[in-house]
């Protein structure tokens, strides 16, 4: 049996908005560690990995490990019915064919429950190794979203290059080219406004902007984003979910023919 209660229900609403356009159906895995998900997009180019740790919930009970297959579009429709200040409780059973979402208003004067049908989804976990990355960039998530949005009006792909000069985002399209360089900047009023670049060696990789733009839907979850790059690995775009865990997007690069 799974029973979890999340006082900050808006977090779950934001999580769904961050993944529903990338992945249609996915298995949520329930364990003593937390509520997690790993799923590939339908093109098998990107992978999303979500962890909401059990300690982040006001109440968390999971008697045994099991998975619940959900259509994320339908789950999003249900969670949109929760108010931003609502407390969300999720209840489900191993082997059950439905999951219940309960929404409580902060003053407890409105309580709603929604039951959603589950689905059988054939999915296998990919093994994601711990890796050393050539470069790790941490920057404000709003800045990264702005860059991806701006560049996608000019081209379809972005070249992300990290050198000791900074991190450069470049694109080219029919109308011209664009280059945006962000330098390390730690002299800011608030730590979340800093751009921090840790570089072991220069790296330059090309990615489809369509996916990057999709990842930036997680920006409301975190003020900062961490982009980890290595020439032999997919890029990892990570948004920390305060006190609870993370949402990580892995994107395979495009390579020269």
């Amino acid at each position: 049996m799974l029973e979890l209660r999340l006082v900050q229900g808006s977090l779950l609403k934001k999580v769904l908005e961050s993944i529903k356009d990338l992945v249609n159906d996915a298995n949520f895995d329930c364990s003593a560690t937390g509520f997690s998900l790993q799923a590939m997009d339908s093109s098998h180019v990107a992978l999303v990995s979500l962890l909401l740790r059990s300690e982040g919930f006001e109440h968390y009970r999971c008697d045994k490990n099991f998975s619940m297959g959900m259509n994320l579009g339908n789950m999003s429709k249900m969670l949109k019915c929760a108010g931003n200040d609502d407390i969300i409780t999720i209840k489900g059973d191993d082997g059950g064919d439905t999951i219940t979402f309960m929404f409580e208003s902060p003053s407890q004067d409105k309580i709603a429950d929604f039951e959603m049908k589950l689905m059988d989804i054939d999915s296998e976990h990919l093994g994601i190794p711990e890796a050393e990355y050539h470069a790790i960039v941490r920057m404000p998530s709003a800045e990264f979203a702005r860059i991806c949005k701006d560049l996608s009006s000019i081209g379809d792909t972005v070249i992300i290059s990290v050198t000791k000069e900074g991190v450069k985002f470049s694109t080219k399209g029919d109308i011209g080219t664009a280059n945006i360089v962000c330098r390390q900047n730690t002299t800011v009023d608030k730590p979340e406004e800093a751009t921090i670049i840790e570089m072991q060696e220069p790296v330059s990789l090309t990615f489809a902007l369509r996916y990057m733009n999709s990842f930036t839907k997680a920006s409301p979850l975190s003020n900062t984003v961490t982009i980890s790059l290595s020439s032999e690995l997919p890029v990892v775009v990570e948004y920390k979910i305060a006190e609870m865990g993370y949402i990580r997007y892995y994107l395979a690069p495009k390579i020269e023919d």
């Binding site: 590939m40 093109s43 098998h44 180019v45 990107a46 992978l47 296998e124 976990h125 990919l126 093994g127 994601i128 190794p129 792909t157 090309t206 489809a208 690995l233 997919p234 892995y250 994107l251 395979a252 690069p253 495009k254 390579i255 020269e256 023919d257």
Partner: peptide, 14 residues
């Protein structure tokens, strides 16, 4: 031109 690599190229099933 560039070719999109699949994520499975990097990560194997557990």
């Amino acid at each position: 031109s560039c070719t999109q690599v699949f994520i499975l190229f990097y990560f194997l099933y557990l």
